[in-house]
Amino acid sequence: MLFLKGESFGLLGMNRRNGDYLLPNNPRSQYPLVDDKLQTKRKLEEFGFPTAVTYLEITHPFEISRLKLLRRYREFVIKPARGSAGRGILVIGDREGRRVQKTNGQWLRHDELEYHVTNILAGLYSLGGTDDACFVEYRVHSHPVFKNISYEGVPDVRVVIYRGIPVMAMLRLPTKQSDGKANLHQGAMGTGIRLDTGTTVNAVHRNSIVTKHPDTGVSVAGVQVPFWEQILETASAVYPIFGMGYIGVDFVIDVLLGPVILEVNARPGLNIQLANQKGLRHRLDAVDFAGEKVEEWLPAERFAFAKELARL
């Protein structure tokens, strides 16, 4: 059958991801924890995981005037707490009096900033269009290793974690097309990462396989992701916090702070398979085959198992 053709190399499709991995492994009650980035951050901080510092939380329209407090900051990022697919994120890289500059060079007046926050609070960018909260956080400065293979924005490392075990990872590189965002469907580039060594392998851009960054023209294969061991260790340890069996955890690597968890995604996309040129299903099956009580393993055991998975 035509539709089954992909099954032979373990390609995971949207239907199977939803029906066999998300529905059985991610309890509905846990979703708010990851859908709301503010809750995610609080939880991560509680357990001592590295996150970007929150400068300001705005949950009600009357608090919008508190945006003035940001005048001391030259750089910051405004995010909707429940935004999806990178929508509504505003990265500010410079300030001149009351004006601030987006990282793409566009200047914004203070009232434009307030309008953006109003839109966020009214739920324009949130999942399902419900009222939302907004927060302002530390702007991560990307590790210099990525300088030549990304365009503006901050590259991030997405690790898919199944039943506590990291099963696949990729490096997401912003491009001109993605407007500095690291979301693949918005035009960012995805590069597979070998779980054992942390070096990049293949790359995908707009669903086709490429070798060079479309804007800088630099080859993206064979790059060593800095702090890889630390990233994989952290990824192996997050399971107990969220209690969700199938998640994607996004790390950014700050030049000063090292790996920082930016957000957790309860519906991680499938493009990671293209970036790695590998289907997910063999690795997911390997985790299921490893035992009934994978969830109770120690982080170190998970870490070791994840490295083993690189061979699949």
């Binding site: 059958m1 035509l2 539709f3 089954l4 053709k5 992909g6 099954e7 032979s8 190399f9 390609l11 499709g13 949207m14 239907n15 199977r16 029906g19 066999d20 995908v204 669903n207 086709s208 396989i209 499938l270 398979q273 293209l274 040129q277 289907g279």
Partner: peptide, 21 residues
């Protein structure tokens, strides 16, 4: 309970098929 691939995914992951398929 159809958990197979969607028709559009055959197109979306066509690069993967070129290599493995």
């Amino acid at each position: 309970r159809y958990t197979g691939l969607r028709l559009s995914e055959l197109w979306r992951f066509r690069e993967l098929r070129k290599i493995k398929g």
